[in-house]
Each structure stands twice: as C-alpha cells, then as structure tokens.
C-alpha cells in the first residue's frame, strides 16, 4: 500500500472576482521508502500541494475537491484536532528557511522535547536523552552541550539540521521537505541533502521533496513529478524524466539547465511566463508557450497519459 495517495486534489481561493483554482486535479502517490521529487517554477503550486497535504492551507485557501489518503485512510476531511495529531507524528515537514523556522526564544532542546512529548509518551528525562541523540544523529557536534543553545547560536546549515531533527523526532512515515536547501550555502546544500537521504533511508521513510533545483532532484529522488500552473504535467522515474522528458515543458525545463563545459552566448530559457490564475488559457495551460502547440491543445485539457517512458499530460502522446 502506498504511504500517500493524492487523488484529483483541487485547491481554490475564493476572491471577490470569483474562485481561483490554484491546484487543479493533482494526482500522484508515494510508495514506502520512496523519494518523490516535485519540481516546477515559482507559483506552479508545489508548496501549496505540500500545505494541502498536511492540512495547513492559509485561509481563504481551501480544498475544493479530490482527496488525500495517508496509508489508505482519508485525511483531507479530518477535523483540526485529529489532523493535528497526524502532523509531526505521521507526516513530518521541513521548511525552506532555517533562519526563520525555529522559534528564537526557546532552546533547540526545548523545541525537540516539546515536539516529542506532544506525540510520544516520554518522561522529561527520556525526552531529553532522545533529543541529545537526535542532535548527534543530524550531526550537531557536542550535542550534549549544544542542546540548551538557542537557534541564533547556530549557523544556517546547523539550524537546518535541527529543523530536520524536529521534523523526524516524532517518527513520521512521510516527510514533506519544502525547498530544504534553497536558503543554504551551496557547499552546505549537498551535506544537508546527504543527511536527509541517509536519515530517511535508515528509517525507510517516504519523502516528498519539493524543490526547483534539478541537481538536488537528480541526486536524491527516485521519481519526479513536474508541476506547471497548478497541475502535474509529467511524472516518471528520475532517469527517464531527466534524460528522456516527454512533455514540451519538461523538455524546456531540462534544456534550460546550463552545462558547465559548453560555452554559449545566451542561457536557454522557456519564452514567456506562467499564466496567472485569473487568466488561465483554455485547453492545455502550457499552450501559449509551447513550441509544438496545435489546435487540440487550445481546446481540450490533456490528462496524464502514457508517453514513451513516463506519463505526461500532453496531446502529442494521445
């Protein structure tokens, strides 16, 4: 059984000028121990998908349709208090900026202990012991002394390690990592990804890794979902999507990654910009920017369909 199944998930924002659909029938699943990379440009709906899964959409955003299943049980319609017990305990979350995700007024130890004791029946002494072990496990040197240090006494990379410990300390089955390395130094990024990969593999955790860094995805993910304008436009194994992309958007995305040893005049890019939510074109949302648009793209919306080695939402493969 899959750890996570997202089926036709739709997220809407009611506004004065009508309802905007920010996620449109998004579907994917994550198997036990699998790392699913979710890529796409800013505003494609990657983070929103993560927020919708853990039930923390910012009002007025709301789930307008579809469902989210965690190990076969529906969780998108749970009342707040039940969902709260799932957050942290069954789904851990890692956020982008470690400088702002830790409460500045509490020591890292206190934050770890508080999180563990919320979900696990632990005495204060046991929780503290475990907190030290977690800090050691995520590679904080001198964890015994550092447990009472405050977030501002750690560097950015160290803080993200603490955030990872906080996300994993109540032993969830699934981790949603929303751009976990974007705010970090390049040299630190690789370390943090390696750490995340090691910890999740050791425990057999599933990961939804949201990023726009293709390098991170290629290194860490088993499968990739490519999102565009609130939809999944292509999904497949990491090697297949990176080397043999089917959807013209994915092709453009992969083509725009600069290659170090080739000298070029201009970096390649996809012309135009992603459509705004209130000006979504009919048919395929990528059709105004697509180099291979034809009539059907402007009239009918494509669903995910088998396309060579992956699945793509594109009429070229109908």
């Amino acid at each position: 059984m899959n750890v996570l199944d997202v089926e036709n998930l739709t997220v809407e924002f009611p506004t004065r000028r009508g309802v905007l659909r920010a996620l449109d029938h998004v579907s994917f699943s994550i198997a036990p121990g699998e790392v699913l990379g979710v890529v796409g440009e800013s505003g494609a709906g990657k983070s929103l998908t993560g927020a919708a899964i853990i039930g923390l959409l910012e009002p007025p955003g709301r789930i307008g349709g579809g469902q989210v299943l965690l190990q076969g049980h529906r969780i998108d319609d749970l009342p707040y208090e039940k969902m709260r017990r799932i957050r942290g305990k069954q789904i851990g979350a890692i956020f982008q900026d470690p400088l702002t995700t830790l409460n500045p007024l509490y020591s890292v130890g206190r934050q770890l202990i508080e999180t563990m004791q919320t979900h696990l029946p632990l005495s204060n002494a046991d929780a503290r012991l475990r907190a030290v072990r977690w800090l050691e496990d995520v590679g904080i040197p001198a964890a015994k002394q550092r447990i009472d240090a405050y977030p501002h006494e750690f560097s950015g990379g160290m803080r993200q390690r603490v955030v990872i410990a906080l996300a994993l300390c109540a032993e969830p089955r699934l981790v949603i990592a929303d751009e976990p390395t974007t705010a970090l130094d390049v040299s630190i990024q690789a370390q943090v990804i390696a750490l995340l990969r090691r910890l999740t593999q050791e425990r057999g955790l599933s990961v939804m890794l949201i990023t726009h860094d293709m390098g991170v995805i290629a290194e860490a993910a088993d499968r990739i979902a490519v999102m565009y304008a609130g939809r999944v436009v292509e999904i497949g194994g990491v090697a297949e999507v990176v080397r043999h992309p089917s959807h013209p958007y994915t092709v453009g995305l992969m083509g725009s990654i600069p290659v170090l040893d080739a000298r070029v005049e201009r970096l390649r890019q996809i012309e135009g910009a992603m459509p705004r939510l209130n000006a979504m074109p009919p048919g395929c949302p990528f059709n105004p920017r697509c180099p291979r648009t034809f009539d059907r793209c402007r009239d009918e919306r494509p669903e995910l369909m088998p396309a060579r080695q992956t699945a793509a939402a594109c009429w070229l493969y109908a």
């Binding site: 851990g92 979350a93 956020f95 702002t100 409460n103 500045p104 919320t118 979900h119």
Partner: peptide
C-alpha cells in the same frame, strides 16, 4: 514561519 513550523509539528 516558526508558528507555521510549530503547527506542522502538530503542537
């Protein structure tokens, strides 16, 4: 962000 993270940890 730290309040969002506190919510995400199920506090």
């Amino acid at each position: 962000d730290y309040i969002k993270f506190a919510r995400a940890r199920g506090l």
